[in-house]
Design a protein around this nucleic acid. Structure first.
Lengths: 190, 190, 190, 190
DNA sequence: TATGAATGAGGATTCATTCAT
DNA sequence: TATGAATGAATCCTCATTCAT
């Protein structure tokens, strides 16, 4: 049952789940999600074996989308700092343009339902980001730390920034610049 | 008169809740918690009106304990960096010594059951930390950012570090040092 | 499409509730009612949002049935006394034929769970009875009393009679006749 | 444990139960009642073995008080109608002066917790009333009906009247007179 | 005797999942 | 395939009653 024809329905459900989780948290019921998707209760289980399966798939989809979007139009030949800044800007654009996706993702990230496999899948999906990070930290104070740590760290800072911006969009621009400088200091020193 | 209300029981429940939440997540049932505390199902509700009330109290207790412990023996006259380092060390010591408290706290932090009042209570409990942060960033690149942002940012970095250390305690010492330098770079520049 | 919602099931639950309440009182649990109806615990809540909702619906259904039955075959052109006697006879027939309905109704009538709306709904359902009562008391000693009072009074006498008849069916016939005369004396004098 | 010294406490509890039941219905918890009585939870069970025991005792006490009060100052040598009128007046005075007792009694009367023994006890307590009723109906249309039936019937009419008066005290006086005439018509004819 | 802490058997309700149509 | 009715285990919480003090 895991992959029937109608792709629209699948994504309708995933999209509904995003909205439901953003507003109700992980406690959003499958009934709510189905209703939000304009689909029957039972249909949800035609497309996803389990609520957990839905959650995992949504997590991977959201995180992958985020990674992909962040890399769109990356200036190929530029310096790492330039590229990081580009990524950072894209990332924030995505998150502020889709606050519901961001909120849902934040919830999913800490859920016990997300399997190690999903976390793994996401990691490999963001290998391009990892590469960029690798190049950015070369010769810097973080060069000997585990790459995973640097990744998570960057992610944590980014998410904190995003959440602050979403909550108080007043001085967003300034804040975003300050935050990028902070990230760069973390990764590349000075 | 009557059997006096047993303060041990209260803390037994809080402590059991910590363990249960650390291992089962916020879905840990009141029955589990009561059993783990060696207390009857109904007794839990003698001490806490509601599961949410228990969660909130636990959150405040844990976070306050973390803040208090981090400040124990703070070298009064020293430079901000010295003091931050001290706090950082203490913080990590607490977290690594009590991984269950750390895990429970991580879950509680994102729970919808935690009221604004509890978050407020915690904030005021950690005002000393805020002060230290304020002094540390003076004249640095973060001096104009909202203090709350700097606080959350520091917190995020710390927690990421702690989680990594807990997961892979191999090169803990080195990692901790690297992470502190990163934090200092974020807050104070250079 | 899907399994159509079974109307029998609804009435099975209502009917089971009647029996359960007749024998156990309003404390009859939803579990008992569901079991008695040959339905799962959860199904009860598919048909009734709440135990209180079930109770209210049952109350209205029972009282309406009682009113309707009492009016079946009412001799249209007859004198009020004739009509009242007819109603009285039908009423008693219904009550003695369905002692469980009568007992359940007695309990529901005094329940705090029955809303004003339900009481209202019942009132309008028994407007034909009210009309008959109005005609019967015309020119009699009760002509200036509030109609609601006369209605409740009649109801109280009827129910007392019914309960006595159900408890001791020995001289039912005589008792019923005596009681009717009493009612008529109350309403119409002489 | 059924009858310890301190009579004040006993009656404090009974009185508290009256108030609690009047306002909360039979669902009033023993905790509520104890608190209302200014007595500890556990003490209630020193005086009454069981909640049901408390309820039964309260029922008997209330009903007995009602009967006794109704007979105070009964004009000894008068005609039955005169005596009935006196009783009726006293009864209504008691009920309107103590609406909480009346409300509690109404609830208790239909409770499954009240044993047959309690109902029996009440009957014998109101034997004087029964006597009066017996004399009143002599030679009338109710002379051959079971005495118990006539008693319950009278009671039902009285209670309906009381409830109406309590609910809408506007034309109380007129209503009370009309109702008495109705009762007398029921019992003694014309 | 008086207290109120402690108990644990329920009780109403929810919800992921199954299944008849 | 799509539906939504049906399920029943699981959950939080209540409350009469017991018992240590």
């Amino acid at each position: 049952m895991a992959r029937p024809r109608n792709t629209d329905r699948r994504s309708a459900i995933l999209s509904a789940a995003t909205r439901a989780i953003a507003s109700q948290g992980l406690g959003a019921t499958t009934a709510m999600i189905a209703k939000e998707a304009g689909v029957s209760n039972g249909s949800l289980f035609v497309y996803f074996d389990t609520k957990a399966a839905l959650l995992n798939e949504l997590y991977v989809a959201l995180k992958t989308e985020m990674a992909t979007t962040s890399l769109v139009g990356l200036p190929a030949g530029s310096e790492p700092r330039e590229q990081m800044l580009h990524m950072w800007t894209q990332w924030l654009r995505w998150a502020t343009a889709s606050p519901e996706k961001r909120r849902a993702l934040a919830q999913l990230q800490v859920s016990d339902d997300i399997t190690a496999a999903s976390h793994q899948a996401v990691n490999s999906a963001s290998s391009a980001i990892a590469d960029l990070l690798e190049r950015s930290r070369a010769g810097g104070p973080m060069q000997d730390a585990p790459l995973g740590f640097v990744l998570t760290l960057t992610n944590a800072i980014a998410e904190t920034t995003i959440d602050t911006v979403i909550r108080e969009p007043a001085d967003a621009e300034a804040l975003v610049r300050v935050a990028f400088d902070a990230i760069w200091r973390v990764i590349a020193g000075a």
